[in-house]
């Protein structure tokens, strides 16, 4: 009796290796061109009526970051923002106080340092430089420490960076009040910098005599966080 001609499994063609190498090749192409492909995809699904595109990583979408457990919501009645530290005129603002100050609108791309981004996000709010002018920093003040009512998050910025025209104490996003998920009712939007510099659930602006590293800066992120650097 003879066995049918059967090649042993150990001597077949190395298809597995080819699949792995092929995937790696595609991956390299994906890393180099992914940014452009993502732009095209997000234009394609910009008006998806089904909402199904939210379930897959198609195009640009915000990712919600919180560094603590759940964060309590604050509204117009419970929200307050303190401006303190090395200033001549410390102040506390309610949401209504902030809404009565001059409002500025800017539309920019939102960039996370890890690589995801969202095109053309419209923000409205009070220029941080306006609040700083009202508070009158003393000559010792060189930097700012932002605090969040999540109780943990902090951020830093030099006074010079904070005075840029496109750094806002943001009250609206996409024309609506900033939602809790996005750090509302009041958050920072610092256009020249990566997302981690734009403190969510903003509760305090403290003027300091040195640039004290914030939450992510303590965990290795760049102190300045300028987009593209």
């Amino acid at each position: 009796m003879s066995e049918p001609q059967e090649r042993s499994e150990l001597d077949g063609t190395p298809v597995g290796r080819r699949v792995v190498l092929g995937l790696l090749g595609l991956g390299v192409v994906g890393v180099v061109t992914g940014s452009a492909v993502q732009d095209a995809l997000s234009r394609l699904v910009a008006h998806d009526p089904t909402g199904l595109s939210q379930l897959v990583p198609l195009g640009s979408a915000f990712r919600y970051y919180s560094v603590t457990g759940s964060v309590e919501s604050r509204d117009a009645s419970s929200y307050s923002l303190s401006v303190s530290g090395l200033v001549a005129r410390p102040a506390t603002y309610t949401l209504a106080d902030l809404q009565q100050l001059p409002q500025v609108s800017i539309t920019r791309d939102f960039h996370c340092v890890t690589g995801w981004y969202v095109d053309d996000v419209p923000w409205t709010g009070v220029r941080l430089s306006h609040l700083l002018d009202l508070a009158a920093p003393t000559s010792d003040a060189v930097a700012i420490r932002f605090r969040s009512f999540d109780g943990v998050y902090t951020e830093n910025m030099t006074l010079e960076q904070a005075r840029a025209d496109d750094v806002l104490v943001a009250l609206t996003m996409y024309g609506e009040p900033v939602t809790h998920q996005h750090g509302g009712p009041v958050r920072i939007y610092a256009a020249p910098m990566y997302g981690y510099k734009s403190t969510k659930w903003l509760s305090g602006i403290e003027l300091t005599d040195r640039d004290i590293p914030g939450y992510w800066e303590d965990r290795g992120y760049p102190l300045d966080g300028i987009i593209g650097e």
Binding site: G27, G30, V31, V32, T33, G34, S35, V37, Q38, P57, H111, V113, T114, G115, W116, Y117, Y221, P222, I227, G228
Partner: peptide
């Protein structure tokens, strides 16, 4: 590439995020 943010430029980091997702 995403974790060590200094390794490649931003556009490639965006591409890496795209592939990773």
């Amino acid at each position: 590439l995403m974790f060590f943010t200094g390794l490649v430029r931003l556009a490639w980091r965006s591409g890496a995020t795209f592939v990773h997702d």
